[in-house]
Design a protein around this nucleic acid. Structure first.
Length: 356
DNA sequence: AACTCGGGGCA
DNA sequence: TGCCCAGAGTT
């Protein structure tokens, strides 16, 4: 049994479930491209329950594409009032006039021609072409991303160009070319009713025995998104040491911010720390042994913003007695204070050096 | 690739 | 509150 017939079996079970459990919606089972088109535009980023009444009102007020094309824009917008994403209404209106002028009043009967209509993108063209004209284009919407990512445990993020290509290819691979319209509606309906973003009803899923995420117990881990970087906070406590005209610095070597830049001895803490808290930190005594006579003075606190970090930096001026300090010389560079400017440092340290 | 556009439902 | 919804157009 080859891959294609496996996929068709999957699609057949999906469609069997759809026939049994699908919601009864006013745009279902229509061979009218205008009605299906309007429904698809209304349902962009909009839940079925929110869009249903708008669809009924819109079709009553503008029953065909000619009436929509003839209508003043104000009336179209009035019909859309409260639904949001109003460019959908403007584009719908403009596209209706496009159909009258460029397509002589006949709704374009192919995926590629539909793409020329204002407000019709890859999703809507695939939806109308498959549902009304039986053309084998897979729809890839939020539901499909979710269902496919779980079904095949796809860890590729859905919000990248390579991710979108991968999911489009996967959707095409399981598409039923015999009935792409029913297949497309079925996979979206599954995403809306069973394979939901939260608390999916895996116990009721017709594809459970195919689902790799379910098999691994990782359903809630999909789909993966690149997501926004979390604005994590970091707390850095720097020690600007002064010893007979010399200071101590070190090059950052770790895979972290500011790699290969130089900086003062540092203790990073989980939260904001004062000097007393730092002195009770074990790392403090690797820098400054307990028996050493050292004086500390808090100089300033700088808040430094990176793309995905907020750095809270405290700077302490440290007066070291004597001319030697074995505890530091192993790990740090002992340099003349005047030659500090010869070393590359972070913008944060530049800011500090400007303040002193 | 990142931004913008909206109102509503849900845990 | 943050996420998500049968996405598309602009920069």
């Amino acid at each position: 049994m080859n891959k294609q017939s496996n996929d068709n079996l999957l699609s057949r079970q999906l469609q069997e479930w759809y026939r049994q459990y699908r919601r009864d919606l006013p745009w279902r089972d229509s061979n009218n491209p205008y009605a299906v088109w309007v429904s698809e535009i209304i349902l962009q980023q909009t839940r079925v329950n929110q869009g249903r009444d708008y669809f009924l009102r819109f079709m009553e007020r503008f029953p065909d594409i000619e009436s929509l094309a003839k209508a003043p824009e104000d009336e179209v917008m009035k019909c859309w009032e409260g639904l949001g994403y109003y460019s959908r209404a403007r584009n719908l209106h403009a596209a209706a006039r496009q159909v009258v002028e460029e397509f002589k009043g006949h709704f374009p009967a192919s995926h590629d021609e539909m793409l020329r209509l204002k407000g019709v993108g890859e999703y809507t063209a695939a939806a109308v072409a498959s549902i009304v004209f039986g053309q084998p284009y897979p729809v890839v919407d939020g539901n499909v991303f979710r269902v496919l990512s779980r079904l095949f445990a796809i860890k590729e993020p859905i919000d990248t160009s390579t991710g979108r290509k991968l999911f489009t290819g996967t959707a095409a691979a399981i598409l039923d070319p015999q009935d792409p319209g029913t297949h497309n509606q079925a996979i979206m309906e599954l995403g809306a009713l069973v394979c939901t973003p939260r608390l999916p009803r895996c116990g009721e899923c017709p594809l459970q025995h195919y689902c790799m995420a379910f098999e691994r117990g990782e359903v809630s881990a999909f789909p993966v998104k690149k997501g926004k970087p979390v604005l994590r906070r970091r707390y850095l406590n720097y020690f600007h040491i002064e010893q007979d005209g010399f200071t101590f610095i070190r090059r950052r070597e770790d895979a972290d911010i500011w790699r290969n830049l130089y900086e003062f001895p540092l203790i990073e803490t989980e939260t904001e720390s004062d000097l007393a808290a730092l002195q009770s930190d074990p790392r403090f005594h690797t820098l400054f042994p307990p028996d050493s006579e050292v004086s500390f003075r808090h100089v300033c606190r700088l808040k430094h913003l990176l793309t995905h970090r907020i750095i809270h930096a405290d700077f302490y001026r440290v007066e070291l007695p004597g001319t030697k300090f074995p505890a530091l010389e192993g790990d740090f560079l002992r340099i003349g204070s005047a030659s500090l400017s010869e070393y590359p440092v972070s913008r944060l340290l530049q800011r500090y050096l400007e303040t002193i």
